[in-house]
Structure formats: structure tokens, C-alpha cells
Design a protein around this nucleic acid. Sequence first.
DNA 1: CTGTATCCGTGTTGATACTG
DNA 2: CAGTATCAACACGGATACAG
Lengths: 221, 221
Amino acid sequence: MKKRAYSDGCAAAHALDLIGDRWAIPVMREMLLGARRFSDIRTALPGLSANVLTQRLEELEAASIVQRRKLPPPASVQVYELTQWGLESEGLIKALGRWASRSPHKEPGPMSPVSVILSMRTMFSADRAGDMRATIGLHFGPETYRAEIAGGAITVDRGEIDDVDALFSGDQNALIASLYGGVPLGDVSDRLTATGNPDLIDHFMHLFPLPPAAPDLHKAQ
Amino acid sequence: MKKRAYSDGCAAAHALDLIGDRWAIPVMREMLLGARRFSDIRTALPGLSANVLTQRLEELEAASIVQRRKLPPPASVQVYELTQWGLESEGLIKALGRWASRSPHKEPGPMSPVSVILSMRTMFSADRAGDMRATIGLHFGPETYRAEIAGGAITVDRGEIDDVDALFSGDQNALIASLYGGVPLGDVSDRLTATGNPDLIDHFMHLFPLPPAAPDLHKAQ
DNA sequence: CTGTATCCGTGTTGATACTG
DNA sequence: CAGTATCAACACGGATACAG
């Protein structure tokens, strides 16, 4: 009755026993910024079918990585959220992203709002920020996020977007195309509007440098 | 003809496309300390069958994570090694191990010599080391490793074990039982011999503290 | 001895349809 | 909205046979 497991004392192998199953890490990623509903996760991960999501959530709950909680009335809906220890996987997920950002075969693709926020936390450059101090609002679909940049550090979380120095509103994929793909904001203005001080916006757009791609040594693809 | 992939622009998801397949990460782990032969990897990972190893090595090579190289005559054997970028996955694999070391369900198990060395790199405590300065030899089966502790840092690599301050020789699993399991070295003296200054050995054995286990919130297992 | 290729039983995954 | 049921396709692991 036991599922397939690496029988290895190595802690990294144990990590794979816990979260090595397909979709487990993307599902955790979607909860890193706070509790989500079943259908929120499905929307963010279009390739994931309902039965697999059910199974992953059960396994993550059994491993004490995820908790299910019922919101108090009148909402009364069930949500899933990471436990304290589950939240500590953020460093691990950022390490995955930081390493893979150097892949010679990486191609752009659609990203969920949560991935976009996490990519900012991962790729933020203290050097590029210098002594910048700003509050940036991000508005993607029904969700709003708030970034605070100060002292060479960034925090980005779900939050209110009134009283921000600049605001991005629209499709998160357009922001990504501009942040990491070098597309000028003007070229995606039909999908994303940026309001606020233009110099501040320009500075912000350069805070997230990508590392150089690793050489592709296997020429014959 | 394309294999199953997350179609997600998130870099962490791309990492899973590259190294998310079963056994990929343990295979990489075995190469983190230098080139290995096909059969070295099989010995270190007893649950991995030959056909799956062949497939993983091909995929990792196609992704520019692994290179195959032919040792010059008279050895003339083929070895597999990580590329520069592949080596950079060490931080990621250590992050996996560090996070999973807090799992409430973690159980001890046999570890390969390479895992043991990597666990030392991962769990080393600069605080515990203080101003300790020592060279420790480790001798597991046919392989020797050398740890240098100085300035609150540790390096551990394959290396010679002449001229060390202390030497452990025998079964790496006995060392693990003592390092992390609290078993006195005296209780495993039939499997592992430790030679050198007893105070130094005792200090060494306390350099690798485990973090506290996370609470098990899902009582009904 | 060192790998590689093929076959096969089994379990996991994923798409669709369906139910409370 | 939040899952469950069903079923087909695939990946895994074991055994075996084969090539250098």
C-alpha cells in the first residue's frame, strides 16, 4: 500500500519523496503568497487536472506541508494554505528558479500572477536598486500586490494599491515580456498600463536582471 | 515526439522540466563531487535500473547539465560529469536537503558516500566551529575525502588522507548514525574507526546540528 | 567488465465526464 | 464550486539479452 519511494537517508531524496511528484511544486508555489481555493489553483495551472490536484493536496496535507481551512461565515469556503514549514520552501523554489534561469533551452511562456511576484523576489538586484525607495502596485486580474523597495531590499506581497508611487495594471505576461524579454513597455501598452513617475517606472523595470545563459554543449539537439 | 512538459514561463517550472523526472536529482547528486562511471552511479543508487539511468543521462546531457567524457588511455573508460552550470545546482540540492531535514516524517536510511559529504557541506555550523582549524580525512570503501575546517567555513572534497589531523574509516552510514542520530562513536566502532585527537574528533562530531522538526499537523496518518 | 537495447507487468498520470 | 469516477496512455522498474 506504500507509494514508490527512494529508500535513501539523504535529506534531498526525502524531499523528493515529499514534493517530487509531478505538479507538487507548482501547487505549492501557488500557495506561497497566501491561502488559495481549489479553483484558484486550477486556474493558475491549466495543465493540471482536478483528480491530480486532489491527490497532491491530500499528499501535501499528510506531509504537514499544507493545511486546509474553512473560512468563517459568510464566506464559508474551503481554502488551502501552506503550514509554517511549507512556507519555508520558498528558498528552495527560488533556488530552482534561479538555477533554471540560466538554462540554454529556456523559453518564455505564460506565467501566473504568483509566479510573476516570486520571480521578482528571486531576481531582485540590490546593486541595481541602490538607495531607491518606492512603493509599486501591481494589479493582475482580480488580485492586487504591493512591492516595497527600500534599503536595497524588496518585499512583494498581496496588498492594497492605493497610495503607491507607480501602478501596473493589466496582464502579468505583458509585464514579464518587458521585465525579462526586453520588450519596451510602449509595445505592450494594449495589455498593460503603467501609471506614475516615468523615471521611477524605468528604474523599476531594470531591477531584475537575468543571469547569462549557460552554454549549450549538446549542439545536436 | 516531445515529452510531457509544464508549459509555464515560471523558471522553477522549467527547472522541473529539466530535472523533475524521477531519479534525475539523485543522479546529479552523485556527480557533484566529480566525474563518475555508469556503474558508480548504479552502486550508489540501488533502486535505479540501468535503462532508467541511461535515459536520465541522455536527457541531462541534452539539457547541457551533464557531459560524457572519455578518460585518456590507458584508462579509456567513459565517465559522466556535470557541466559548469550543472555544478551550480549544488545550492539547489542543498536547499532541498536543508528544507527536508525538518520533515516530521523523515527517517534514517542508508546514504551514499557522496550524500554524506554533501550533508556536511549543508549542515555545517559556523557558530559551532568557532575558530576551529583542522583537516579531517574520510575513507569510505574505495574513496577518500578530505575536509578542511578554518575561519568558520568548511570545504569537503575528494582528496588525499595522508597528513590529516583525524581520520574516519569504514562505513559512512555509521558516521551518519553518530553525526545525526546521536549514537556514540563507541557504539559503531565495529563499522567505523576514528583515529586522531579525541577532543578534536568530539568537536568535529558536533559541527553539524540538525534543525528542529516541523510539527506534524496531520495527526491521523 | 561497461554500458545499451528490448520486452513486459504494474502503477501513476491525465482527459473526460459526472455528482453533491 | 469542489471534487469523484472511469479509462487510456505512459513511465517506471525488473529481467534479460546484446555490443564493445
